[in-house]
Design a protein around this nucleic acid. Structure first.
Length: 994
DNA sequence: TCTTGCCCTTA
DNA sequence: GTAAGGGCAAGAT
């Protein structure tokens, strides 16, 4: 589509006085869509968020160019769009950009509207068959620069940075960031002329450019700086010292050359519209106003009308009946109109863009303006302050009261909150203005004898905390932390209960679970484009690592104040998204209230019997020694039994046993399933190995390791729960992991017996029975399953009966076992391959079982298909309480990966809804126990189980209350269509209670 | 000394 | 077939 306003014949070339602005249209649409809150046209809900952002950006650029100063306005201007997915690059490399998800549903109608917008603003828009927008931009930019004109590319796409030069600049309007040669160097470690060399080595996962394995940006820049360019490097690859690197460069040389072709922009596209034709034409005021009115963009309508002298009141809104969107007919019924081909064709070409913070568009709300400020104000330390007097501290506290919120971060001596001593803390209420309050820094020079004395110029800890406590506990000041649970635990040990509070890690997790990590450094790079000072740079790592109290105060201050500043900025970027993406309830009901609940559980810890574990270690060692003798005998030599490599060589090399499988790296697999198969064949050695491994695992991971986790003061074991580690909403437990304590085998349960109640107390274990199958029955709406749970039937027996037509009474246990495996398979997103593996049957037989199952329970099949459709369309799936699990790669062309993500997406709502239910129970539990005057304490959570410690006299009352809270956890907002059943028991140790 | 692969523990 | 964390051996640095 071309919009040439002028006549070819008499077009003068561009000169040094000209300024050409090239807008990367497709990328802009995606980024505006993600960065801006969803905005819809009043009468019919037509989504126009991206259109609005686009119009505002166009208007600003046309009026001002890049700066408000006169003379910066463009003389030439064009918006460049992608045309179709088929380009010369997909011919070279079919996987190129192949994993891109389709655009969100409410973005699709906006593609067409944005093309309309270019017309309304009398702006040239260019797209050309077979070429990406980037190639057209490259061609125009090079042509204009040759004529001496100034060129500005408006894009956030790093692939365009190779075009930067004396006459060519780039601006990312979404981030308000200008790119010149220094920025390119910062990003790629080389100048613009070498960018493609680096890219062809490092590859790009976003565009599926393969590059060379094991080489990232850093290494690529290093190599290019040494060798000059890709070809020289490849021809001299043999000189590389590092073995792996050399081999990869040689092996993947061709792949690197293909990558180079992919990333090299075509600068000689035979353009249909010559660059000289792109001159700016006068804005037709009434035309623009008509369009803007139709979109319902009142602010911009007014502004354009004022500037152009158009009389807005007299101009009729354009008549936009946009096909492809639900528009009410004359009776108000929603009617779906077919989407126009143009709108849909855009979908396959439009790059999937990460959501980015709002840029320079007119803000829709104050919140997005704040987000913009947070993301775009450069981070520098000049407004960071080290607080050394109480007066100074009080003025920072006053500012927190005044502003109403404060980012807060503690610095301590340990990553383990239970062992961490407070060293200092940082505050920040205004972006860019942060402070560090050192409290316990010691002289780092001296070792054990000298030094270790408190450094001068620090406020006494007690005085500082006394001054801070009222503010940290004040309802009127919102505290903002990254990983709040940690700071909450540190402060509660100083008698301060932080409240109310937000956690940026949980905000990110709520909004973006599955899209990547939620740690501060990662979030800062993702949202602020800023890499915070690494902890390693301050404290070092490994053996030479020092504790934070030994860091010089000036260094500590720069690091800590930056953390508070970054935390505040992240909060300003993420918090507004909660409302606009309708995730506020999930955050407020399922995430934030978990912080103090888990913190208290961690603080309480659980008692383990050290002697018992020590005895077990001895027993295990003895058992292992006996097995080792037999193993060496059978093998005919001594070797490291713990080495899968050595074991594989013995079994499949030396002894030449059959049935050897290979791992993905080509080594012999010695997994338990392989060894079991060999044992069944009657081979002695494999069965001994399996037994040895079992004991070895129990000893090293549990009986040896757990005593080392007993806290010196509390004498109990304190795990750490992560609220933001899983995609589905489950918790995870680490250091030590108390969610994988053995239970399956007799020997293993002895470990569990070492988890004991305090004197005079009992442990209560309360677990949901079959919660995931119940959730599935509810969500997929399966009558037979619901009925079976209603009637309290054995669900696996019922499944077997339904599938194989056998009566439940007197059922063959093997039949039931198969049905049970199928039920689990369903929850895991079943595949014939997996089921066959699990049951040790053929793939065909497994397929037949699955087919039968789907015939008997057609609702399950429907449910699975619906989920798959959902995840492919949206990139995420949701639990019954609205939690989202994202699968950004689900549209990959790789069939295995695709199937994997589909299974994960099928499982996520089931596993995640169950996790939500237990979270709801946990959030309520403490208040309910208090209200009933019960002293029971919640100690552990293991996905569908809660462990309590309770005085012996209150066991019965506690069990019935716990059961009630857990069984009614969905209420009142949701009435599950199946009953939840909780089994609970009390005993002196965890094994017997379970 | 740090990272990766393998194997094993749980729900 | 889903979701996690951790110990050890071996290889890369």
């Amino acid at each position: 589509m071309i919009r040439a306003m002028s006549n070819n014949a008499s077009i003068p070339a561009l000169t040094a006085d000209d300024h050409l602005i090239l807008v990367d249209g497709s990328t802009f649409i995606f980024r505006a869509y993600h960065a801006l809150p969803p905005l819809t046209r009043k009468p019919d809900g037509l989504p126009i968020g991206a259109v609005s952002g686009f119009c505002n950006m166009l208007w600003k650029l046309l009026q001002e160019g890049l700066t408000p100063e006169k003379g910066d306005e463009p003389t030439h201007f064009a918006v460049i769009f992608d045309h179709s997915s088929k380009t010369f690059r997909s011919d070279i490399y079919p996987e190129y950009k192949a994993q891109r998800p389709p655009p969100p549903e409410d973005l699709i109608p906006q593609f067409g509207l944005i093309r309309e917008a270019t017309k309304a603003f009398s702006v040239h828009s260019v797209e050309q068959e077979g070429f990406e927008a980037d190639d057209l931009i490259a061609t125009y930019a090079v042509q204009a620069a040759k004529m001496g004109a100034r060129v500005t590319i408006v894009s956030g796409d790093k692939d365009l940075l190779q075009l930067i030069g004396p006459n060519v600049g780039m601006i990312d309007t979404m981030k308000n960031k200008i790119f010149g040669e220094p920025e390119v160097f910062e990003k790629f470690g080389v100048g613009p002329d070498k960018v493609i060399e680096v890219q062809s080595l490092a590859g790009d996962s976003v565009d599926n450019v393969p590059g060379v394995p094991g080489i990232g940006l850093k290494t690529a820049a290093l190599l290019i700086n040494e060798y000059g360019d890709l070809e020289t490097l490849l021809s001299r690859a043999g000189e590389i010292k590092q073995n792996k690197r050399r081999e990869n460069l040689i092996e993947f040389a061709e792949q690197a050359r293909i990558s180079k072709q992919l990333v090299t922009l075509k600068q000689d596209v035979p353009v249909d519209v010559p660059v000289t034709d792109l001159s700016v034409t006068d804005l037709n005021g009434p035309k623009a106003v008509g369009f803007l009115k139709a979109m319902g963009l009142t602010t911009l309508t007014k502004r354009v009308a004022e500037t152009t002298g158009a009389e807005a009141a007299n101009i009729e809104a354009d008549d936009f009946q946009v096909p492809g969107w639900h528009i009410p007919d004359h009776k108000g019924r929603m009617v779906e109109h077919a989407a126009p081909a143009a709108a849909l064709s855009a979908d396959s070409t439009a790059p999937g863009a990460e959501p980015l913070p709002n840029g320079m568009m007119v803000p829709q709300t104050v919140a997005t303006a704040r987000a913009h400020a947070a993301a775009s104000a450069p981070i520098d330390a000049s407004d960071y302050e080290t607080v050394t007097t109480l007066e100074q501290l009080k003025s920072w506290i006053a500012e927190a009261y005044e502003v109403g919120y404060v980012a807060f971060d503690t610095e301590t001596t340990s990553l383990d909150a239970m062992q961490a001593d407070l060293v200092g803390l940082s505050l920040c209420s205004k972006v860019g203005k942060a402070c560090y309050v050192p409290l316990a820094h010691v002289d780092g020079e001296g070792d054990l004898l000298g030094g270790g004395g408190l450094v001068e110029g620090q406020i006494p800890m007690a005085e500082a905390l006394a001054a801070l406590k009222p503010m940290l506990e004040d309802r009127g000041v919102l505290k903002i932390a990254q990983n709040l649970k940690y700071d909450w635990l540190v402060m509660t040990r100083h008698g301060i209960d932080i409240s109310p509070a937000d956690d940026t890690m949980l905000l990110s997790y709520t909004l973006d679970a599955g899209k990547g990590g939620n740690g501060m450094d990662e979030l800062s790079e993702r949202w602020l484009g800023h890499k915070p000072i690494p902890f390693k740079e301050i404290c070092g790592s490994g053996k030479s690592m020092i504790t934070f109290d030994r860091v010089p105060i000036d260094k500590a201050s720069a690091y800590a104040a930056e953390d508070a500043d970054v935390t505040l900025r992240l909060w300003q970027v993420l918090k507004p998204r909660l409302a606009s993406e309708r995730m506020a309830t999930v955050y407020e009901k399922l995430e934030r209230p978990m912080v103090p609940v888990l913190a208290r559980m961690e603080k309480r810890g659980i008692s383990v019997d050290r002697q018992m574990l020590s005895r077990l270690s001895g027993d295990f060692a003895q058992g292992m020694a006996g097995l080792e003798d037999e193993i060496y005998q059978l093998a005919g030599e001594r070797f490291n039994i713990g080495s899968p490599k050595q074991l594989g060589d013995i079994l499949f090399g030396k002894m030449n046993l059959p049935g050897g499988k290979k791992t993905k790296t080509g080594a012999w697999s010695t997994s338990a399933s392989v060894l079991d198969d060999l044992a069944v064949e009657g081979h002695e050695l494999p069965s001994r190995i399996v037994s040895w491994r079992q004991l070895s695992k129990l000893k090293s991971t549990y009986s040896d390791a757990l005593p080392g986790r007993i806290h010196p003061d509390t004498k109990r074991v304190h795990t750490s729960y992560s609220l933001a580690a899983t995609t589905t909403g489950r918790l995870s437990s680490s250091e030590p992991n108390l969610q994988n304590i053995p239970v399956r085998t007799e020997e293993g349960r002895k470990i569990r017996q070492a988890f004991v109640a305090a004197t005079g107390h009992k442990l209560i274990s309360a677990d949901y029975s079959q919660i995931e199958l119940r959730v599935l029955a509810h969500m997929a709406d399966i009558p037979q399953l619901k009925k079976a749970f209603e009637d309290g039937l054995d669900i696996h027996a019922m499944t077997a009966s339904e599938m194989f037509g056998v009566p439940i009474e007197g059922m063959d246990p093997m039949i039931r076992r198969q049905a049970k495996a199928i039920n689990f398979g369903i929850i895991y997103g079943i595949s014939a391959f997996g089921l066959a593996n699990q049951l040790g049957i053929g793939r065909g037989e497994a397929s037949a079982y699955i087919k039968t199952y789907f015939e008997r329970f057609p609702g399950i099949k429907d449910y699975m298909e619906a989920i798959k459709k959902d995840v492919h369309a949206n990139g995420y799936v949701s639990t019954i309480f609205g939690r989202k699990a994202h699968y950004p790669e689900v549209n990959t062309k790789n069939p295995n990966m695709r199937a994997f993500y589909e299974r994960a997406a099928i499982n996520a709502p089931i596993q995640g809804s169950a996790a939500d239910i237990l979270r709801r129970a946990m959030v309520r539990m403490e208040d309910r126990l208090d209200a009933s005057k019960l002293d029971a304490q919640m100690l552990l959570q293991v996905h569908d189980e809660l462990i309590f410690e309770v005085p012996g006299s209150q066991v019965d009352a506690t069990i019935s209350l716990v059961r009630e809270v857990m069984e009614k956890a969905c209420e009142p907002v949701l009435q599950l269509s199946v009953p939840l059943q909780v089994d609970a028991r009390a005993a002196d140790n965890w094994d017997e209670a379970h």
